[in-house]
Amino acid sequence: GKELVLALYDYQEKSPREVTMKKGDILTLLNSTNKDWWKVEVNDRQGFVPAAYVKKLDP
């Protein structure tokens, strides 16, 4: 199944490769191989958020 992450903080995108999220958002995790930036999908948009700003949810 899909892996989900919880947004721990608000994040405002600073480049087109990033996405904005609000604290409490549930996002689909697409790629977590980079320790600093994780690729997520939110509202049909894909992009990166700081890994420290999200937490993996237990399945």
Rank of each mutant, 00 (worst) to 15 (best):
A7E: 00
T20H: 03
V42P: 00
E3N: 11
E3P: 03
R17N: 14
K55P: 00
L27M: 14
P59I: 04
N31I: 05
P59D: 04
N43L: 08
I26S: 07
V40T: 02
K35W: 03
Q46G: 08
P59H: 05
G24S: 03
V40Y: 01
N43T: 10
P50R: 02
G24T: 01
E18F: 03
L27N: 01
W38N: 02
L27R: 01
F48L: 15
V40A: 01
V42L: 14
R45M: 08
A52I: 05
K39V: 12
D25E: 12
M21F: 13
E41H: 05
L8T: 10
G24P: 01
K2I: 10
S15L: 10
K23N: 06
F48N: 06
A51V: 07
G1C: 11
R17K: 15
S15Q: 11
R45S: 11
D44W: 05
D10I: 00
V5R: 02
V19R: 02
Q46W: 06
A7F: 00
L8A: 09
V40S: 01
Y9E: 15
Y11F: 12
L27V: 11
Q46H: 08
K2W: 05
E3M: 14
T33H: 11
E41I: 10
Q12A: 14
G24H: 04
G47P: 00
N34C: 14
A51M: 04
L8S: 05
E41R: 09
D44K: 09
V19F: 10
K14A: 12
G1L: 06
P16D: 08
K56T: 09
M21P: 00
T28M: 09
K39N: 08
L4N: 08
E18C: 05
T33G: 10
L30E: 05
A7V: 07
D36M: 14
L6P: 02
I26N: 05
A52R: 15
L4C: 03
L6Y: 10
V5S: 05
A51L: 00
P16I: 11
V42Y: 09
P16M: 07
K14H: 15
V40E: 01
Y11K: 01
K56L: 11
A52C: 08
Y9Q: 15
K22R: 15
L6G: 04
D58I: 04
A51C: 05
S32N: 08
K56I: 08
Y11P: 01
Y53N: 07
E3D: 12
L30T: 08
W37C: 04
N34F: 07
L57T: 10
Y9K: 15
N34S: 11
G1H: 09
L30G: 02
A52Y: 08
L27Y: 14
K56G: 05
G24D: 09
S15W: 04
D25G: 04
L27W: 02
V49F: 00
K55V: 07
E41T: 09
E41W: 05
K39Q: 11
V5L: 13
E13S: 12
N34M: 11
G1T: 09
A52T: 14
L30I: 15
Q46K: 10
L6E: 15
A7I: 00
V54D: 00
R45N: 08
T33Q: 08
V5C: 13
L57N: 04
T33L: 07
L27I: 07
Y53H: 10
S32K: 10
D25R: 03
L30D: 02
N34H: 15
L57R: 05
K56D: 03
Y9P: 02
L29I: 05
W38A: 08
D25A: 11
A52L: 09
T28A: 13
S32M: 09
